[in-house]
Design a protein around this nucleic acid. Structure first.
Lengths: 359, 359
DNA sequence: TGTCTGACTTGAAACGATTCAAATTGACGG
DNA sequence: CCGTCAATTTGAATCGTTTCAAGTCAGACA
């Protein structure tokens, strides 16, 4: 149908401008040597390039310069609403740095993770960013990357050793914020749905809660505490929240607030409460964690502890870009672990206790 | 830190196995010529490759064979919940075909779209898939792609001309399903929030509604119909739904159901109704369109017309993969336009009219 | 013995860019 | 008129694969 358009190569630009390919390369890339090129020459070359519609061939460029302008972005499950803002943050920061993201979604499966890793390596990504929030697969493989001089960063997870940078929220501070909020609203009988043991976030988040409770002399009734099981189903948070809230209700112990492990869990809890005829927030407050996008839209909108997801994506990119630069300049460089500060977002799912209440 | 690991090239495999690079290439790619290679040779080469941990260099391969194993995926706004399932569908299908997606998010901005297009071309993607649901940017540029022999497909939008395939939902059928449902529940005073004029979906969806109304002799009161403005804000659907429902309520005309343009609009409507003290679904039913992931989780969960989003992503990939194949074999090939059938998903935001009602 | 078949393998030329060491040029001081 | 120097520009090698036309070689056949 269409007459195959011949690709415009650097040769063509050289011919058109009357200089050699070497010069063209130097000018168009603004290489160090460009300092010595006469301004008139530069102009002629640039004009020729524009007129011909020259577009550098990223592949050919890589072959010589070892730079693919490409970064692997491995998401463990794009279906999880947590991931979208993070991805946005990553994408945006990469765009600023003129890198192009190669997208991989592991679907929470180890084999898929491995195969994608393989593919990313074949495509010679200059760095790898892994978003691994709700994840039950070990990612030790990442440690090997540093051997190949590929900088890597994880978001929402940490890899032991000193070869992978990471960006996480300060879970302990977040846990504290959540309980503090309920406490100040006057709640004392507080149920809690803890995160699965295997999740890295669960521990610190709970610790923050306990610390605050202790600091104000609040006792958390163990019979009002449940823990999500280790599962890797998508949306298992919602299901879990629903099921365990039902269980809490069946125990017939009174509570006026629920501290959910994350937003999805919170939605599950709200659903269970509503179904049981308990009005949120009138009769029971619920607070989540993460502030995934739908939390603002849901009815009632969710009070939650916000992770700065987009900023975390940004941060991870900045880290690996620094790593890439260091590698190029053969500078020393060491990984870093970032803890971002969470923020309480107050919406409609929590409410102050009526004066009548307490004990 | 780490001792730079030398890359294993095909040369190394050749040396190790005692054959020439040419033979190695033929064997490892299972090229046509492999028919003539002795089985013993194949085995030795494959063993050597495995032992050395050989990994083909995608870039070098491209340079010669013109195959990048790469497909561009341009999303107009990943923040829109509509996009996630589509992306999942695309990713999954590409993975099956051993293509790697290069991810681009236009943020609904023309300049960004153009720049990304440029970058994708530099990376020599073999095809391009564009997800463009809530989009106010013209994508005529896509037509140029066919000149470069790059097959393209759009999801949720159509490009005039015969150079770009497309996958859309059958909006007219969907509109019909929505109204039909409300009608069968006994609703007669139905408010409608139409989509923005510039959106390609708005027209057909409304047409489906009107056709059904006409077929059962239902009159849709024009004073109960509003139309969303042309805006490109993220979540403008939610805002719009909220604002226009408030407006409808102010008009003091009674209605028992709302036909929202899409799910986000529906959530906005529900929020406005709830705020005004109108209970959903007890006093007013609301039906959406799309079935974005959060529709199942929200409270009340949303009755909606489902677009098979993941399948649409799949479909688009199949189309472009066929296009790529045809191009390689120099076969003729022409684009196609697919209309997927929508499906009514009944959840908790709609309810049958009480007998007392009507007129 | 010489030639002819297959049946396998391979040499060498691309592909499009980058990178230095080296070439060219013109001017200038001696 | 020559040597030197600074200011520009370039030749040619190289990156790792793929691709055919062409090579090798053992045995079969005349």
């Amino acid at each position: 149908m269409s007459g195959k358009v011949k690709m415009v190569t650097m040769r063509d630009v050289a011919q058109a401008s009357g200089f050699s390919p070497a010069t063209v390369s130097i000018v168009l890339n603004n290489a160090p040597l460009a300092r010595y090129i006469a301004p008139a020459t530069k102009k002629r070359i640039e004009d020729a390039a524009k007129k011909l519609g020259y577009r550098p061939n990223a592949m050919a460029r890589f072959l010589r310069s070892r730079r693919s302008q490409t970064v692997g972005v491995m998401i463990f499950d794009i279906t999880d609403p947590f991931c979208t803002p993070v991805l946005r943050g990553i994408e945006n920061a990469l765009y600023q740095s003129s890198y192009v993201p190669i997208f991989a979604d592991a679907h929470n499966q180890r084999t898929r993770f491995e195969r994608y890793l393989e593919m990313l390596l074949e495509h010679h990504v200059e760095a790898l960013i892994v978003v691994a929030n709700w994840l039950f697969v070990d990612i030790q493989l990442l440690a090997d990357l540093s051997k190949r001089n590929i900088t890597a960063a994880t978001i929402g997870w940490e890899v032991p050793g000193d070869s992978v940078s990471s960006v996480m929220v300060d879970n302990e501070a977040g846990g504290r914020l959540a309980l503090e909020h309920l406490y100040h609203l006057g709640h004392r009988k507080i149920a809690a749905i803890r995160g699965p043991k295997m999740l890295i976030d669960s521990g610190p988040r709970w610790k923050g809660i306990q610390k605050f409770a202790h600091s104000v002399g609040l006792e958390i009734d163990p019979s009002l505490v449940v823990q999500l099981p280790d599962e890797l189903e998508a949306n298992s948070g919602f299901e879990g929240g629903y099921r365990f809230t039902e269980e809490l209700l069946e125990r017939k112990k009174k509570f006026t607030a629920v501290l959910a492990f994350d937003d999805l869990t919170a939605f599950g809890a709200i659903r269970a409460l509503t179904k049981a005829g308990v009005k949120v927030p009138e009769q029971c407050s619920v607070v989540g964690f993460d502030d995934v996008p739908l939390s603002a839209l849901a009815a009632p909108s969710l009070t939650t502890v916000r992770q700065p997801l987009e900023a975390m994506g940004n941060m991870a990119v900045n880290l690996v870009v620094e790593g890439i630069k260091a590698g190029l300049e053969k500078r020393d460089w060491s990984i870093s672990r970032h803890k971002m500060t969470p923020e309480l977002v107050i919406r409609d799912s929590t409410r102050a206790m009526l004066t009548a209440a307490d004990d």
